[in-house]
């Protein structure tokens, strides 16, 4: 009995910092934002409670479309990141051993030693009309006038994929590392070609890694602010920018909080749907 109560106190002490951290920094602010999102300004310093802010999202096609656009592009960026990262991860995990493996892995990490802002600026230097790529093409004589590669959806996707690569490569390498080479060999030995082995053995085995990578990349992309604003240009309103605008430029915290919660809910829904479609469970994917 004594021992058990001692254990309980110990457990309490052990959990207290974490619980306080979570409570003070995550739960409390969210609760407050949620209350704010239910407020509605009627006159200076006079508020009523109501769901207007949430309704606004569904009534005004502007916001709804921005969200749809953001979600679509996030899914696209996630899919493209997966397509590009998979061969890279496969090469690192299965083709290389020892030193070259570590070096290549480190190379994937390298861009993340600078901030996202600097990375985006790097792309701007490369892609702008008077930038490196355009100048290079002119020098080669392939084009006769400067070409603008920046400020369009493709540039934005490039930036988003670049930013997300590592978060896809790491779980994929982790998943593929545990794939026994003899499973691949058995797949070939029993008559499968490369495509079959990939589809029936490699991908099913790597599925938890694929799904966790996709969730992380999707959430990061959806919540990204810097890259879409800097590389996307005039037509590429991102939903997070919408939230920033409401909070900072329009002083409309009520609308901003509502958008924040809608983003949370809708992205959770998309992740849930993705898990359902890939028949994975969150618990399995996150371990």
């Amino acid at each position: 009995m004594n021992q058990r109560s001692g254990f309980r106190v110990g457990l309490f002490l052990l959990l207290a910092p974490g619980v306080l951290w979570l409570g003070l920094l995550i739960v409390l602010p969210h609760a407050e934002l949620f209350l704010v999102s239910l407020r509605e300004r009627v006159a200076p310093r006079v508020y009523e409670s109501g769901l207007t802010n949430y309704l606004e999202f569904f009534i005004e096609p502007l916001y709804w479309n921005t969200f749809l656009r953001t979600a679509t592009y996030s899914v696209m960026a996630t899919a493209l990141t997966l397509l590009i990262a998979f061969p890279v991860a496969y090469y690192i995990a299965k083709m290389l051993r020892g030193r070259p493996k570590n070096i290549l892995f480190l190379l994937c990490l390298l861009p993340f030693w600078v901030s996202e802002l600097v990375r985006a600026l790097g792309w701007i230097i490369l892609l702008r009309e008077t930038g490196v790529v355009s100048t290079f093409l002119q020098t080669l004589g392939l084009v006769d006038a400067p070409v603008e590669f920046l400020y369009n959806d493709a540039a934005m996707l490039v930036g988003l994929i670049y930013t997300s690569m590592l978060f896809m490569v790491i779980p994929l390498v982790g998943a593929l590392d545990t794939l026994d080479d003899s499973l691949i060999e058995a797949g070939y030995n029993l008559g499968g070609n490369g495509f079959v082995v990939l589809r029936e053995i490699v991908i099913p085995h790597a599925m938890p890694g694929i799904v966790s990578g996709c969730i992380v990349v999707f959430m990061l992309t959806l919540g990204n602010y810097v890259t879409p604003t800097l590389l996307g240009g005039k037509d590429s309103l991102w939903f997070t920018e919408q939230i920033y605008n409401q909070f900072i430029l329009r002083f409309n915290w009520e609308q901003g909080s509502a958008f924040g919660f809608l983003l949370l809910a809708l992205s959770s829904f998309i992740v849930w749907a993705g898990l359902k479609l890939s028949r994975q469970s969150l618990g399995k994917v996150m371990t």
Binding site: E60, L62, T66, K234, D235, L237, Q242, N245, L249, R250
Partner: peptide, 20 residues
């Protein structure tokens, strides 16, 4: 006057979201 900024905000949002 208070309140006009939200009118402007919505117009600006529309401008940003529109496709050129």
């Amino acid at each position: 006057p208070a309140g006009l900024e939200s009118i402007e905000g919505k117009v600006l949002d529309r401008v940003k979201a529109a496709k050129s």
